[in-house]
Amino acid sequence: MRIAIDAMGGDHAPAAQVEGALLAAAEWSDTTVVLVGDSARIEPLLQGRKPANVEVRHASEIIEAEDEPVKAVRRKKDASMVIAGRMVKDREVDAMISAGNTGALMTTGLLVVGRIKGIERPALAPMLPSLDGEGVLALDLGANMDATPEQLVQYAIMGSIYRSKVHGLKEPRVGLLNVGTEAMKGNELTKAAYPLLEQAPVRFVGNIESRDILKKPCDVIVCDGFAGNIMLKSLEGAASVIFSVLKTEFTRTWYTKLAAAVVKKGIGQFRKKMDYNEHGAAPLLGVDGLVLKSHGSSNALAIKNAVRQARIAVSNELVSSIRVEISNGSE
């Protein structure tokens, strides 16, 4: 198995990408990790500790965070992200991972890798945290701001297949993000999508309110990218504020510091459940190859976990399973 990592994308590139690749290479000797990027910056970080299953593919350009996605992908042909996407397209690697410019990665997926036939729009599908630590797969959370009812059905099918193939769930529960649980609640999009999801080849459990997500009322939640991204940012913001307040309160006095020592283990476990580094990366479902988006601030652990996700998805033939299901549904 071969997995490409965009070594120049992300806040801590290329150091985090190199360290993550080394961790992955050490754990999975049957996987070759290809670091795509500026070899002059990557090779010194590997000096004296480069295993046989780590390779470097030179790329002379970098897509920056502030670059306009479509222009960057079209003009920077030798960018690390674009080369990694081309490697997926040409089947040189089985998957690619990037913590770089999200819009540019979406564009790479569409213009370089290409869509699965029958898929109208690919969807970004990160894992949202849940109190049991297993998480909820959510799509779309930003690849497309708008969606049609039919596209939400495709999201549901792809998400269900992902949770089955990658996480081993036999009948993943699929929910529709809405402002209420009643079938006729919501806007025109959700009202039209509800009956279609009832007829779709998924285990649809109805409307889900965002306030219940952390309790994991479903295994897959579908929505348009606008509503989904607002939900994601709200959860991230709430988690940040909670941990900030806890830190302030537990360091206020000698008594609260003592209390903090007592509950430190429990708080640490809760924080781990909420940490995106533990989930690794979000797949771009619907493109004709495995493309994974890591958080921009990913550390080495997140990169390693992204490789783990990619390995499982490749081993369980995720992309081909989606391709077959969508093809059967369009006949």
Rank of each mutant, 00 (worst) to 15 (best):
E68N: 13
V324H: 15
L318W: 03
E134K: 14
P126R: 12
L152I: 02
D11G: 01
T107C: 12
L23E: 15
V33W: 00
A143E: 04
S210Q: 11
A259I: 14
E92H: 11
T256Y: 12
V112H: 10
R163F: 02
K304R: 15
A84H: 03
M8E: 10
V166S: 06
R203K: 15
F204R: 01
V287H: 03
A193Q: 00
A313M: 04
A192M: 05
G228V: 12
L318Y: 02
D11M: 07
D219N: 01
G85N: 07
A7V: 09
A281T: 04
V220H: 05
K117V: 11
N277K: 14
A16K: 10
N101S: 00
P283L: 05
K89N: 13
R91C: 08
Q309T: 14
I326S: 08
H167P: 00
V93L: 01
I116M: 06
V73H: 05
A238E: 11
I116C: 03
S298F: 09
K117M: 12
V70L: 13
K264R: 15
L131D: 03
I208K: 09
S294I: 04
K304G: 05
T181M: 05
T102V: 11
V70H: 13
N101C: 11
A302P: 09
P172W: 04
G237T: 06
D90M: 08
L285Q: 05
M184Y: 12
A99P: 01
D224I: 03
A40S: 11
E150G: 02
N178C: 03
G118K: 04
A65L: 12
A104R: 07
E198C: 13
M87F: 01
K272C: 02
E188I: 08
S130D: 02
W28M: 14
C218W: 08
V33H: 01
L111M: 15
A65T: 14
L22I: 07
